[in-house]
Design a protein around this nucleic acid. Sequence first.
DNA 1: GATTCCC
Length: 732
Amino acid sequence: MPKNKKPAGGRAAKNFEPRYGAKTSFQDRKRRPGTDAPAKPGSKSPNHRGYRAPEADAAPAKARWTAQERAGRDEARGIRSQARGGERFARPDRDAGARGRDDRDARSFDRRDDRPARSFDRSDRPARGDRPARSFDRRDDRPARSFDRRDDRPARSFDRRDDRPARSFDRSDRPARDDRPARSFDRRDDRPARSFDRRDDRPARSFDRSDRPARDDRPARSFDRSDRPPRDDRPARSFDRSDRPARDDRPARSFDRSDRPARDDRPARSFDRRDDRPARDDRPARSFERRDDRPRRTDGPNRSDWNASPARSAEHEQRVDVVHERLQAEAVDAATVAEASFADLGLGDNIVRALAGLGAASPFPIQAATVTPILEGRDVLARGRTGSGKTIAFGAPMVESILRAQAGKKREFGRAPKALILAPTRELALQIDRTVQVIARSVGLFTTQVYGGVPQARQVGALKKGVDIVIGTPGRIEDLLNQGKLDLSDVQIAVLDEADHMCELGFLEPVQRILRATADGSQKLLFSATLDREVAALVDEFLVEPAVYEVAGEDQDSGTIDHRVLVIDHRDKAEILGSLVDRDGKTLVFARTRAYAEMLAEQFDEAGIAAVALHGDLNQQKRTRNLEKLTSGRVNVLVATDVAARGIHVDDIDLVIQADAPDEYKTYLHRSGRTGRAGRRGTVVTLITRQRRRRMTELLDRAEIEAPFEETQLGDDLLEELAGRQLFDVTS
DNA sequence: GATTCCC
């Protein structure tokens, strides 16, 4: 049932190894790659008709692969190489490391010459099994503008060959080329090195600030997202910190939680804890009469179904409503806290200095709001998009709390972690660690990453030595937990980043099991840009009278993001995409499936536009490396699945293209939130076909985004404008 | 049906 129960290895094999991995020798008998041996007819058994004694030079049945071929096959796992079929094992043009650039260059030049204008035409290539058969059919009669352009762009792809290590034997020989060793993750032992972690790519909050929305112009928002548009997710609106106000006029924390029972006094929460809590209904309206003036989910027509799945039992609906109401009651705006420094909020000097080093000189609203309650030990629900300072909002007070709890005690070797941070993707876990590790190290605490796709050894080694904060993804964490290599029983603070996503099918149960493994009564912090009632399941079980905060956003329209929807003919899609990505700024392209993401990256690359892919069928090294390539600017185009939709933090992406429209408004918001940062202009272009107009309109309504729909043909100036204009906007 | 998430 859960999506996470896919058969092991299923996906890689299914999608990307049809030719080499999935076939049996029978299937492949016609002509093996790398071999000229004809198909072998007849029986191998002397007892059967047609038996033919093996000829001396016939390939032995078993020795199907030479070592070299095997290497090639491994390489094929890297996906891109495999489309070429038997002709070669590794495509030289993508695997420069092994073959040398000359070969590759020559090849690409050839291609330009003999391929008239079919820049994105893959029709001449053997179809890959894994690719959706897309019609590139009519490419030939097209103008292919990309082709023209290629001339003046000396193939940027060449440049980037250098930094691609031989992609084949991925991990072993991977010459630490990028200077960033993949090991980054394992690296815990030598710890301090937070390796690539904090790299400057997090210049940090500089941009963050930009996304900080103004807050009080809005009515206190209910926690329930259903009746309101998730705006925080949008970037940008920001530079207006100016209108950020007003925090003063708010009864700053009037809802002073101080009168609430300190955490310790609270009944131990185990699962029964729910029982000791006052039932929602009979709880006294807490100071927040606010509750009443706020729109209730159920008030508005068409609102109640925002996040609801179409069919929900009345029972469930009821439950959700209750939860919702409760959350609403405690919702306060982040701006309740008047301007205060991090030190004022209770953070120690070392941490304050570390924050300054990260570019966080003074708290952003979400931080100003959440630091104090977190230090008080309260459970917190907070909505604030990545980049609004969320990571520091939970990271800094978490470190401070651990420090206080350990005051006077010596850090023991082999100590169990005191805090846990869960993220939905490995990349996000890495990114969080880049920030949290800096803060933790400033006071002598250690963090370690625990996520899949890399060998366990280093992670386990680090845990054995003893760490204070574990940051990771659910799968590996649960795995180590089950193996007895990770002890969460001493975890006093657990954070769920992208909490709503972590409550989706496939994530929820592992997350619940992990949280149950933390200390009884441990503090829970749920953060997300689109926090909604989807977290109800966790709130019910694990949170006690949570404080709810959010960073109010401006209207969707007021941001620095220009949203455009291009209504296109499906047959033009490949070329339109090609012409859109043929530009100078950083471009992030979202595709619905891994195979399509891979295919698009390859297509762009072959058209002379250096591009890499990011999706779950790549090994972790490639994932990390490809993302880093975009961050560092070695490549300007990244084609990703929704693995990159949330949390990925590259500050200067100025164009987000949705090659496939998202199905959910939340996805739209998260994807588009990858651009428009740092006060820059950003554009989000979504390609749809005519049939999808209605669905798209509805989705944009839910997201409260206004975007013109424009019928677009292949040679339209609009495409030039969308691709080219970015350049001027950014540089101006 | 797709996307994350242990080997």
